[in-house]
Design a protein around this nucleic acid. Sequence first.
DNA 1: TACATTTGACCTTT
DNA 2: AAAGGTCAAATGTA
Length: 323
Amino acid sequence: MEWSWPESVLSNRERMVEELIQGRELASQLSRGFDNRPILVNGVDGGSDEGTVNKILGSFVNALLILNGKECDQEFVSDQIQGNSNDVSGGGGADSSSWDGNHDHAAAIKSEDYTEEEISCKSTSTFEDRRGSYKRRKTSHSWTRDIPALIADGHAWRKYGQKNIHNAKHPRNYFRCTHKYDQACKATKQVQQVQDHPPVFRTTYYGTHTCRDYPKASELVLDCTSPRDSSKFISFDNANCLENKQEHPFFTSFASSSVKEELIVKATSDHTVTSHNNHSSPSDYLLSHDDLMAFDSFWPMSEFSSSIDQYDRDVFLKMIAES
DNA sequence: TACATTTGACCTTT
DNA sequence: AAAGGTCAAATGTA
């Protein structure tokens, strides 16, 4: 893949390099033997190895954010939310739409938009069986991603249905937020394999997450000293991942058709988080799927995401150190 | 035992 | 009527 450096990227290149250097330094410290020496992040004890891994990843991903210029480009996210994700710009082949060979699907996606109030109108006040009562999606936001493997978005999803779709080779899987009832979160998504070789999975998100993951010790808030960085949070909540039977954001393996084995990466599929920085909390994060794709492209290893199941944490760390 | 998944039925939209 | 989206009982899993 060829790299070009847009002007906006060049202006941030120095900061990006700093992030990369920090990540590399952390990796080097880890690779020197996990010898119980305190690992320092910006002069502060980095904590556990696991936490350090998160910080390393955070550094690299933060560099990617700078590379993509996301931190000052809210419209970038909005465009994706509007269903225009096939025209993602921003740096260095981070565009997941390169896998999208079905242009006619874009129109279909737009027609599936809906308002949150419309998503379900199941009656709770009548004993009449209202199963399946709902309003089909018509307006509002959806966001589609085509990815070569199942990359999770950091949210806990629960499968509630599967349908064979007309003229589709693979069934469509329906997911709702696990916190639909306890936190009234209305986010849903659909996942469907749209290509076999190589496998491409199309994930369409509907609605926004109103649920909250509670802060975990491993969360990372990067040291952002400049004012423009003040709103940037990245966290890799592996505690939450464990809670979902997954081990680590960047290291978890997954099977091609099993959602419970999705690679969990604490990233935004939720445009309310990325678009509105005024509600900052430790669980906030500003990493989109494009960033993950960018990470995939950036990482000096081909087909990182599609072959990540081969790499456990140690291997990954070793690669960081060697790089 | 609690939670997640499967799957056929039910319902709405087109 | 066909297709797609959701529900919920049955089943599986840890």
